[in-house]
Design a protein around this nucleic acid. Structure first.
Lengths: 256, 256
DNA sequence: CGTTTGATTGACCCCACTCAAACGTGGTGG
DNA sequence: CCACCACGTTTGAGTGGGGTCAATCAAACG
């Protein structure tokens, strides 16, 4: 329905949409900024030729020029180990940011690959830095964004370190569901943009385990699986799998 | 030998040491800053009463006032899961920073606990922000620090997601060793400040597994273990365990 | 159509966890 | 100074969760 969420439309209609007009701005970088600041931000945001499936947005080692926001489509970020295998460290949906890994020494420490046809907004670092010194709000915005990244990665460490396969899958589905709601999509029906292989990699599991647990949850009547299309039939039971107490629920309702 | 690395001395001698005089400044926040900027930073750095073992520096949910640098001793940071168990997300040695998890919404999302008697430098956020707007270098410094945090956590995700117990233990020992060298301590002989339980938690393993692998590596002549005192006897073999190809070595030599 | 790629399912097995007990070691008080 | 206790660590035995291997199946594509 919306422009931003349909890659076909955005690709062929017009490339540049101002942040003020973008329906994702509440989720994205401009979150909480006033009209004036947003229009100044607008001036530095650039558009980029849409990425085709499996295109690289950037690779490990590439010089870091900018931070990126997904406008439509989705992107995975991966890090590579010394002995060759790779770990997916994040899936990025429309409105989510990436590229913060390049801040340490000016070159990216992970690789970003599109999962489907994807368009991104580019915020060039030099210009963004310049803007930061004039707009006091932008600086704290940057901090918030990086703090969010750190916090999210902590949650992922918790998942990889302490959760069983069942809990991981449930957590993953709930995370996607929650983010779908944020984007005003249905909480209980969505299409995963990544293959099973990527889900497994992300969760530290084997593909077969992911497949088996999807099947198991379907048999239990918790979800319905049709290839990459997922329907959550019993959200409460899914939440019950990840943790008995209500901490998660309390935290979510407190945030919104 | 050095003041900063001996908690007893620093505690009873004098609390405040300027960044310029601190032998950790090359590892710490001031890394790369000139004398002038450093003295301005000095003006906002505060000292804090030393923490006793198992004291909290801050807890999840606490309001975030500052970022902290370990001056002596060590600190662990942990996140808690809905169902009660916790994951250690980092061990912080002298010169290392913590508190960045509070940047998202102004309250900490993890808990910091000292592993031994520990003193920290406090950099209050409001003052630091003020300084950022006048010192252009400080802003980019902040970014570097956060970028480093993100990158380190990516490496940890890789470890938790893809490594076997053997690789995890080897990686852990090498990480400690590398950081000891940075602090001008011996690369091959050190005392771990955390119990086995914490190592196990951090690596996503059971205590028994950690114990067994330490024993196994000792039997193989790779390390020598005496309670918490570790001697690395065969650094090359240890590096061999984490990855067959030489990427790690190449990267390290390229950086230095 | 055949081919390829991704997903599922089954059989088997191994790594790492659990449970349990023994073993220092350090601290405490008699 | 020694006896005692508490805690962290080690070691052994047994088990199960999830990985591996292999075959099958279903879409998508040329």
């Amino acid at each position: 329905m919306t422009v931003a969420n349909n890659p076909k439309l955005v690709t062929f209609e017009r490339l540049k949409v101002s942040c003020g007009q973008c329906n994702l701005n509440e989720l994205c970088f401009p979150h909480g900024m006033d009209q004036e600041d947003m229009s100044k931000l607008d001036a530095v945001v650039e558009q980029r030729k849409p990425l085709q499936k499996n295109d690289f947005l950037y690779r490990e080692g590439d010089e870091s020029h900018a931070i990126y926001a997904v406008r439509s489509g989705s992107i995975k970020t991966i890090v590579e180990s010394p002995n060759g295998d790779e770990q997916i460290v994040g899936f990025h949906l429309p409105g989510e940011l990436l590229g913060l890994d390049g801040f340490m020494d000016g070159s990216h420490t992970c690789t970003a690959i599109s999962l489907e046809t994807t368009s991104v907004c580019v915020m060039p670092m030099p210009k963004l830095e310049g803007l930061c010194s004039t707009l006091p709000g932008l600086q704290s915005q940057m901090r918030r964004i990086m703090g969010k990244e750190v916090t999210e990665e902590h949650q992922m460490l918790l998942m990889l370190g302490k959760m069983s396969a069942e809990e991981k899958i449930a957590t993953f589905l709930l995370s996607i569901s929650r983010r779908m709601v944020e984007r005003h999509w249905k909480a209980t029906e969505f299409v995963l943009s990544m293959p099973r292989q990527d889900i497994a990699n992300y969760l530290g599991l084997a593909v077969e385990t992911v497949s088996r647990l999807f099947a198991q949850y379907q048999d239990s009547g918790i979800i319905k699986v049709d290839r990459r299309r997922i329907s959550i039939l019993d959200l409460q039971r899914l939440k019950g799998i990840v943790g008995e107490c209500k901490t998660t629920e309390a935290r979510n309702s407190a945030k919104s």
